[in-house]
């Protein structure tokens, strides 16, 4: 399914500076096509995360619509939107997102347990092997390194086989070898029909991009 943003923008209130409010993201339209990898670069604070959150249904845009297929995300109830995100949208957020109380494997399986879904243990084992964390399957998140946590979060997203993958700085904590591994995984997901969107302030993601954009002070332009 295609994820489409129609003229979405986000404004925040800020006291300092001339104006009382500013655009974290200026009005922008974007289409994430199935089978493609889209990369968004940009400096810190340019609005990348804000845009990604709006695309994922986590942050209501000040203006504009986000459509998954024909469904307007922000017209749904919280219940419907939550279930839709669980089923179709996989988000790898910036920073820590692995639950301390669960093991790596339980973390990866967690999204599949919230609503009725087929057993995903096999897929989980496969993705853990792909991302070199199979030895950590029974480890608690509190015992993991930053890079291992990152790969766990990626495996959690991949395991659910979502139609849309939104990854925020997915290789931030990773060495070159693991970065290549993760990019290969995203490419593979795209090859299987997922629409992949990667946000990064480094340019190495560009090597796997079908389309690339640059964000500057809330304004997105093709690269």
């Amino acid at each position: 399914m295609m994820l489409r943003a129609e003229q979405i923008s986000k404004q925040y209130f800020r006291r300092t500076g001339g104006a009382n409010y500013f655009h974290a993201v200026k009005p922008v339209s974007l289409e994430l096509q199935p089978g493609t990898v889209t990369v968004l670069c940009g400096r810190s604070g340019s609005g990348k995360t804000t845009l990604l959150h709006m695309l994922s249904g986590l942050l209501r845009p000040t203006e504009g619509r986000v459509l998954l297929g024909e469904t307007d995300l922000y017209a749904l109830s919280d219940r419907e939107l939550s279930q839709l995100r669980n089923r179709f949208i996989g988000v790898v957020p910036q920073g820590r997102s692995v639950l301390d109380t669960l093991t790596v494997e339980e973390n990866i399986l967690l999204p599949g347990t919230l609503y009725a879904a087929p057993d995903r243990r096999e897929a989980a084992a496969r993705w853990m092997a792909r991302l070199n964390i199979e030895a950590l399957a029974q480890a608690r998140a509190s015992e993991l390194s930053g890079g291992e946590l990152r790969r766990t979060a990626i495996a959690r997203t991949m395991c659910a086989a979502p139609d849309v993958i939104l990854a925020d700085e997915p290789t931030g904590d990773l060495d070159d070898e693991n970065t290549a591994l993760v990019f290969a995984c995203f490419r593979e997901a795209a090859a299987q029909g997922a629409a992949v969107f990667i946000v990064s302030h480094e340019s190495d993601a560009l090597q796997i991009a079908d389309r690339a954009f640059r964000m500057d002070a809330g304004e997105m332009n093709p690269l």
Partner: peptide, 16 residues
Amino acid sequence: KREFAVLRLIGMSRGM
């Protein structure tokens, strides 16, 4: 807070 935000992220509704 972060734990709960992650749960929402992976598809838990407010009610759940």
